[in-house]
Design a protein around this nucleic acid. Sequence first.
DNA 1: AGCACGCCGACT
DNA 2: GTCGGCGTGCTC
Length: 801
Amino acid sequence: MNIATVIVDVPALGTDKEFDYLVPKKWLGVIEPGMRVAVPFGPRTIQGFVTGLKIDSPFSNKLKELKEPLDLTPVLNEELLALGEWLATDTLSFKISCFQAMLPAAMKAKYEKRFRRINMEDNPFLDELFKGQTEISWKTAEEQNILQAIREEITKGNAEVIYDVKSRARKKTVKVYQTIMDNENILALFNSLPSNASNQKKILEYVLKVQSDQYTAKELSETGAPQSSIQGLVKKGVFHEKSEEVYRDPFEHKQFARTSPLPLTIEQNEAITPILSTIESEQYETFLLYGVTGSGKTEIYLQSIQKVLDKGQEAIVLVPEISLTPQMVDRFKSRFGDDVAVLHSGLSIGEKYDEWRKVQRKEAKVVVGARSAVFAPFENLGIIIIDEEHETSYKQEELPRYHARDVAIYRAKHHDCPVILGSATPSLETFARAQKKVYHQLTLSKRMNNRELPYVSIVDMREEMRDGNRSMFSRELHEKLEERLEKKEQTILFLNKRGHSSFMMCRDCGYVMQCPHCDISLTYHQYTNEMKCHYCGYNTLVPDTCPECSSNHIRYFGTGTQKVEEELYKIFPEARVVRMDVDTTGRKGAHEKLLEHFQSGNADILLGTQMIAKGLDFPNITLVGVLSADTMLHLPDFRASEKTFQLLTQVSGRAGRHELKGEVVIQTYTPEHYSVEYSGMQDYNRFYHQEMVMRKVGSYPPFYYLTLITISHEDLMKTVSTTEKITKYVQSRISDEAIILGPVASPIPRINNRYRYQCLIKYKHEPELKPTLQKVLEHYGQQFIKEGLAISIDVNPYMMM
DNA sequence: AGCACGCCGACT
DNA sequence: GTCGGCGTGCTC
């Protein structure tokens, strides 16, 4: 077993396979599958993942030795290695991308090049090049414009290139001092020290008092003694100095009051029983925990996890990034303390790495995190929970385009443990599977303590307009806001901005500012006074006059949170408003601060976008206002109705979760739309049935699976003809049952000066589709790169743009 | 992806 | 005649 198979860090078609390397004698028995290694690859050295060991290779005549391991223990276990392979086939991605997706970003390799002088003989030219040193970094050489000269020396054999493979983040360490001298000798030393060694005496005094096995550098220096005195005692054999890894703890200065399990309601009890029994019998099963907002789903999660921990197993909890709020984390930290590791995008690369290491070293038993936490390297998983199961953020939009739900089910089958999908508004796919008994449905139909769902009123904004109210607040919302301000109760105002942001339009000629590189209108950003393109980053200053007709009647349209805030101050000058959007939450921790500010009663109104729709649970909120319910109904997306219904229902659920009764006002221009109407009635079932009819008629999920192929190129004709060719090829290899839409222009027909065409395949069962698509990638791959074509294949897409 | 090898135009 | 442009193909 001295040959290792390695997947190398080159995400390309030709290299997406195992390469064989000899394991050097000194690493025999050390190198194991799942480890990262540095390997020579062509002329350079790169990172790779060992996937296996074997005794011979078809390349035995040209095998190279691998350079060194980059880990002491494997970072991917057997399960995760297999999962990576499966993921690569399932999502048509490169294996290396899948492996990297499973690990914290800190473990992705960073490559650096440097030059080393070999010829040490007297040579003024070489001395000059290397500035008298033996090595010079590639970067410095480049800056000083001596790359060419050095390259010549390399061909002459006077210098060589060294390729470094480095990790992005280092472990954070502190110096600790272990006591290696016994008390008696310390006392003797203390007495023998001359009187001017007062600092050393101070330390010894402290040591004799505390009597610990080891001390941190910080603790010793707090005695007032300088570093040099500590070193002196190390020399005298009192301490042994060593470095110890410490974790960067994002919650270091936070106290969590311990909570105990709460008594369950009859409904909760009925729901948790089957979950506990699958944990007990170690069986795979997927549950849909369908419970209205405020029905106590989290307590079911917590008690199920408790059961798993009692059995000595581990748990993964996935939460959408947007609702991974301090509130949510607190609930888990309070119940399970240090057993909890948290993984989300708010942490620095180093912090994420440390949380991951806690899991790897089995120091944490519960992971709470966003999408990628589904890959947590547990070996004895007892449960996987996906909260707000319907959230689209569980699908990764970059390669590998995986869905956390699919990965969770794959892992649960491997570990013989349950998956819990929790939601008040399940995705149609999930609910349909529960109806077909593929998933086991558990229902919580009542709010905790039988609290009523809030009263929802839907306001037709067209009528407001007809009656001469041109404000963005309907009369009803205005009245109710006034009422809350008087009663000192809190309000959430929700602005649905997705799919409808501020743009610039000339009122004289109707000109709308477009991005010169993409077929999309530019977005107005008030705080920088710029027009920006969200797709390519293009930006320009806001013009004073219309670039088309020079009129100065150029205005911006659309409602931003800032504009709402200004208007609020006009109508209610005394109201204290907290605004939450990308502008006010940009800085780290800002999100948390704003929420705390609101929670402590220092504000009357919380105004925000998507990010305030989920998970907030404040007792004093009695009014929720949705300013514009239907802005995303008109997006080119078959899930638009579903998303609208979910969002409205979720945001309504923020009201009246405690003693005070809640009210919701939804303002809309399309009150007759079923997703608005049924969310007002909080009636998921009727929405589900209506939406299923629409999906059936349109041949969309859950009746059909989808795969979206997008082709892009700088030349329009080339884009169209290639998409045509590929569509025909795919069509010829799959059955007539499949429906193929396209080629058609993408909803955004041009991004960054590249034209985009797509082809949508709808199918029920096409075993030949994946292999065909794989062939498309392999066959056209070389040609594509050569001709500047780009292809993207998204299996089960969530973004149709 | 990188990097080397290799085959044709503008310079000393 | 050579330097160097980037097209082509390989990496165990």
